[in-house]
Simulated assay, not measured.
Amino acid sequence: LDTLMYLSSCSILCFLIVHELVPLDFSVEILMDSTTATAELGWTIYPALGWEEVSGYDENMNTIRTYQVCNVFDNNQNNWVRTKYISRRGAQRIHVEMKFSVRDCSSIPSVPGSCKETFNLYYYETDSDTANKLSPAWMENPWIKVDTIAADESFSQVDLGVRVMKINTEVRSFGPVSRQGFYLAFQDYGGCMSLIAVRIFYRKCPRVVLNGAVFPETLSGAESTSLVAARGVCVPNGEEVDVPIKLYCNGDGEWMVPIGRCMCKAGHEAVENGTVCRGESC
């Protein structure tokens, strides 16, 4: 009964999350955002009595879809939920932002020692959407484990009584990825939790004009410490001086380490912060 109270309460209280996902910016390209779903997410569940998809609400009373599980009184749990196929769109490193709530095991009366307050995150690469209910197998290898995800805050029956949810946010990344796409999977092995929101994205450095040159949009590298070089092209009526002009895109989608510059040709002057070479007679 106590676990059922948690599940029903989460369905009602999930509107308290107030879309606290990392604010969008030009360095982020979204591959999948569960909060934007207008119908059932329809992720694949194994076994049937494990994770359950339910409806919650955001701060504007818009319906969102969440997954929850609470089989804490049964030993040897191994519950998986797998996303739909996600195209990587050229990205080499993938970021996963998860919002979730976890029940404090010590606050559940008579709960066995197998109760957990963590879950596992996995990914599986493939060139096409070929997964079914049995494949890939529900186990590590062929899946690749990203990390065990732990809650900074768990909640108790007292929190439910005063209608307070403690929402955790964790971000993990993995790479390099090289196939056309991938699946994510979340494994529960004995917790009482709700997977409230999942956002999958990659980082890029947006197109920019700097030092008299135009640098194209550039995807970040395969590792968090990677620096990807981008070659600049001088703005019209500009010409390169010194060395070939470059910028480097880091793992956070930020431009850094400018090398070289362009100057306006004779008879032109730099205006608009050096982004335009205008004829001096204009």
Results as ranks from 00 to 15, higher is better:
24 L>R: 10
213 A>G: 14
146 V>N: 02
170 E>P: 00
95 H>M: 02
234 C>D: 10
158 V>I: 11
68 Q>I: 01
265 K>I: 06
44 T>M: 10
71 N>W: 09
187 Q>H: 05
208 V>N: 10
115 C>A: 06
136 P>I: 00
231 R>D: 15
22 V>Q: 14
161 G>P: 04
145 K>G: 02
74 D>F: 13
281 S>A: 15
12 I>F: 08
29 E>S: 14
243 V>W: 09
58 D>E: 07
106 S>F: 08
252 D>F: 11
186 F>G: 01
118 T>F: 10
36 T>N: 07
222 A>R: 14
148 T>P: 00
162 V>R: 14
253 G>W: 07
274 G>L: 07
168 N>I: 03
102 V>L: 03
52 E>Q: 15
238 G>Q: 08
251 G>D: 08
149 I>F: 02
92 Q>G: 12
99 K>G: 01
262 C>I: 05
138 W>C: 00
158 V>H: 11
113 G>S: 04
247 L>M: 15
25 D>R: 05
126 T>V: 03
8 S>M: 10
239 E>L: 09
262 C>D: 14
238 G>T: 13
228 V>Q: 07
253 G>T: 05
134 L>W: 10
282 C>K: 13
68 Q>N: 13
16 L>V: 11
249 C>H: 13
182 F>I: 00
266 A>V: 12
121 L>E: 00
59 E>F: 14
47 P>Q: 13
67 Y>E: 02
205 C>R: 11
209 V>Q: 12
142 P>S: 05
219 L>Y: 11
273 N>S: 09
176 P>V: 03
270 A>C: 03
234 C>I: 09
74 D>C: 01
39 A>D: 13
233 V>F: 10
107 S>F: 06
65 R>A: 04
211 N>P: 08
245 I>Q: 14
149 I>L: 02
272 E>T: 14
174 F>A: 03
182 F>D: 00
143 W>Y: 04
12 I>N: 08
62 N>T: 11
118 T>S: 10
52 E>H: 12
206 P>A: 10
164 V>T: 14
115 C>V: 01
46 Y>E: 15
112 P>S: 04
22 V>I: 14
210 L>A: 12
79 N>L: 04
249 C>L: 04
28 V>A: 08
214 V>F: 09
202 Y>I: 02
171 V>F: 05
253 G>E: 00
223 E>V: 00
55 S>G: 09
38 T>E: 12
191 G>W: 04
26 F>P: 01
254 E>L: 12
272 E>V: 11
67 Y>M: 02
159 D>A: 06
31 L>I: 04
69 V>F: 01
239 E>R: 15
218 T>Q: 08
210 L>N: 15
204 K>D: 06
61 M>G: 09
187 Q>L: 12
210 L>M: 13
138 W>F: 05
252 D>H: 13
121 L>C: 00
117 E>D: 02
120 N>M: 03
100 F>Y: 14
51 W>M: 02
233 V>G: 08
64 I>N: 06
231 R>W: 08
